[in-house]
Computed example of a mutant assay.
Amino acid sequence: MLRRPLLQVMRQFVRHESESTSTTPLVLERSLNRIQLLGRVGQDPVMRQAEGKNPVTIFSLATNEMWRSGESEVFQGGDISQKTTWHRISVFRPGLRDVAYQYVKKGARIFVEGKIDYGEYMDKNNVRRQATTIIADNIIFLSDLLKEKE
């Protein structure tokens, strides 16, 4: 199997300023925007469609962080604290969007992979608000859906 040195591979993705012939160098570099969440669904999904845009399935997902406070974390003493973080999940991919709308239910335990998106919108009072959304690429169902429907 032919292997190329790391530097040779990296040169495929990055064009250095000295190699560019134009006044403004074009830099092509790899970046990563990935998020993985494991939690429980906070509400049944809704499907929305804006004018001229593809439909989107939206639901909330809760993740919990727990820690023990006190003198020593090794012993059972100390108080256990918990923080819940809520995430807005948006599913645009046609097949996944429809499956999420049909099968994701409040309370279900799911694993979501995707990317994080920061955006702005105008609320009902014409105030500009910021929104953080997780754009789901993959959803893995961890709850037994068949038992929940019976």
Rank of each mutant, 00 (worst) to 15 (best):
W67F: 01
S60I: 05
N126G: 01
P25V: 04
S69L: 11
L146S: 08
G39A: 08
F92T: 07
S72V: 09
V27N: 03
V9F: 12
Y101N: 08
R30C: 10
Q76L: 03
Y121N: 12
K83P: 01
T84H: 00
L28S: 13
L6P: 14
L2C: 04
G119L: 04
I140E: 11
Y121K: 06
M10G: 06
F111Y: 13
I135D: 06
R97I: 08
M47V: 12
T84I: 09
T23N: 07
D117C: 09
S18R: 09
Q12D: 04
D117Q: 09
L7C: 06
V41D: 10
P94I: 00
S18I: 09
V127T: 08
T24P: 06
S90A: 15
I140K: 12
N54W: 04
N138F: 15
T132R: 07
K147S: 15
V9L: 11
L145N: 03
R109N: 15
F59W: 12
F141T: 11
E19V: 02
I58T: 14
R129V: 00
N64L: 05
K149D: 11
T132V: 11
A108E: 10
R88D: 14
R48D: 08
D79S: 07
Q8I: 02
R129Y: 03
L142D: 13
M1N: 15
H16G: 03
S31A: 09
L37Y: 05
A50V: 00
Q36H: 14
M122G: 08
P25Q: 02
G114S: 07
R68W: 06
A136L: 07
V41S: 12
